[in-house]
Computed example of a mutant assay.
Amino acid sequence: MLFSSNSDRPLPNVPTGEWTQYGANGANTFVPNASAPSQGNLAWTSEAFTRWQPVVSDGTVYLTNFDPSHDGSAIALDAQDGTEQWRTTLNASGPNGTVFVDNRFIVAYDTELVALDPQTGEEIWTETTNGLEFSELLVADEATGTVLVVSMDSIEAFGVADGKRRWETDMIHQLVRAPAVYDGRVFAVGKVDGVPSLVAFSVEDGSDHWRSELTAIPESAAPVATQEGVIISDDHTVVVHDRETGDRLRELYSFDTDTYVRATIAADDGTVFVTSDDSAVAVDSETGTERWRRDAHGIGPGLCVGSETVVFPIDESEFAPKKKTISAFDRESGEMRWHYAFDPGFHNHVTSPPVLVDGAVFFTATHIDGLGALGDVPTQDT
Rank of each mutant, 00 (worst) to 15 (best):
A34E: 02
F363E: 02
E286I: 00
R293N: 15
V189L: 09
A221P: 03
K191N: 13
F273S: 01
G372C: 08
F49T: 07
G359A: 08
W125T: 09
V377M: 04
E286A: 12
I75V: 15
T215I: 09
A280W: 11
Q380I: 12
L356T: 05
F49M: 11
S73T: 10
R250W: 10
G145N: 11
I106R: 06
H347P: 00
A365C: 00
R250H: 14
W19L: 04
V147G: 01
R243C: 03
A74L: 13
R294E: 11
S220Y: 14
D247R: 10
L374P: 04
A222V: 02
A178P: 08
A48H: 13
D117S: 07
H173W: 12
P223W: 01
T146G: 06
G246Y: 02
W292R: 04
T20E: 02
R291D: 09
T287E: 09
D102C: 09
T129V: 03
D67Q: 02
P353Y: 00
R87E: 13
G121M: 10
A296K: 03
T287H: 11
G206I: 10
F255A: 03
R9T: 15
G206V: 12
I124G: 13
T289A: 15
V195Q: 15
V14R: 13
E286Y: 11
Y62W: 12
V261W: 10
L132K: 00
I155G: 02
W292L: 01
A320T: 04
N28H: 04
F362P: 05
